[in-house]
Amino acid sequence: MSDIYTNNYVIVAIFLILGVLLPVATVSFVGPLLRPKKPTREKQTTYESGNIPVGDSWVRFNVKYYIFALMFVIFDVETLFLYPWAVAYKELGLFALVEMVIFISLLIIGLIYAWRKKVLEWN
C-alpha cells in the first residue's frame, strides 16, 4: 500500500520537474544556440504603441481587484471545507446535511451583503 503511495508521488514529482524543465531547457539552453542576439537601446524600450512611455508602470491600481481577491479567498476556502464533507456525506447522514445548509446559508448571506453593497459591480 505504501509502495503505491510513494510511487504516485514520485510520478507527480516527475511531472512537476518535467514541466519546469521544458521551458528552462528551450529558453535558456537550446534557444541561445539558434536565435540572434543584437540588443539595441530602442529595441529594449517599453512598448506603448510607439509613444515614449511616461513614468513607471509599477503604480497603485484600482482597489476593486483587491476586493475580488478577498471574495475569492472567502469562497475558495469555503469550497475546501465542502470537499471533505462531500466525500464523507453518505456515511454522515442527515446531520451533515443540516450542518452544511447552515454553513452555506451563512455564506449566501455574505454574498447578498456584497451584492447589496454593490461590490460585485464593475465600472
Partner: peptide
C-alpha cells in the same frame, strides 16, 4: 518563434 530574438525590456 525559436529563431526569434529574445527581447527583454530594459525596465522589466
Amino acid at each position: 518563434l525559436l529563431l526569434k530574438e529574445d527581447v527583454r525590456p530594459q525596465h522589466a
